[in-house]
Computed example of a mutant assay.
Amino acid sequence: MGKPFDMELFLAGVLTGSHATRQRHLRQAKIIQAEIAARWQRETPRAWQRKHLAWFLEHHLSQRSEATRYYYLLTVRLLARRLQTSWVFNLYL
């Protein structure tokens, strides 16, 4: 069995902002990773498809506040940028 995936190392190149902002993005990215792994057994972001992140935004966050959904959307966009994809995510609050 290999080493666990290091989300901090994965996002290091695209994380900007204050320490608190970087920590929030890391915490949220790890939560997203855990939920996608539990639902689809896709452990790393490289194995994800757009539908996995869209599912997280639409279903996992459906009962959360607008502010929470917005902050997760920012993290999802950061993940998409790091994956160098052209995925576009919009949040209809």
Rank of each mutant, 00 (worst) to 15 (best):
G13I: 00
V14M: 02
T16S: 13
S18P: 07
S18N: 02
H19R: 15
H19I: 14
A20W: 09
A20N: 15
T21I: 07
R24F: 09
H25C: 12
H25N: 10
R27Y: 07
Q28H: 13
Q28P: 00
Q28R: 15
Q28M: 13
A29V: 08
A29K: 01
K30C: 11
K30H: 05
I31Q: 15
A34Q: 14
A34W: 10
E35N: 11
I36F: 00
I36E: 00
A37T: 12
A37S: 07
R39Q: 10
W40T: 05
Q41M: 08
Q41W: 09
T44R: 09
P45W: 04
P45S: 04
R46H: 10
R46P: 00
R46I: 00
A47E: 15
W48M: 01
W48C: 06
W48L: 05
R50V: 03
R50Y: 08
K51C: 09
L53S: 02
A54C: 05
A54G: 03
A54E: 14
F56Y: 14
L61S: 11
S62L: 13
Q63N: 12
R64S: 15
A67V: 13
A67T: 10
T68F: 07
Y70E: 12
Y70L: 14
Y71L: 02
Y71C: 06
Y72R: 07
L73D: 03
L73Q: 03
T75D: 00
T75I: 09
V76G: 03
V76Q: 05
R77H: 08
R77T: 04
L79R: 05
A80D: 02
R82K: 12
R82W: 07
L83C: 01
S86L: 12
W87Y: 07
F89G: 05
F89E: 03
F89L: 01
N90Q: 11
N90W: 06
Y92Q: 15
Y92L: 13
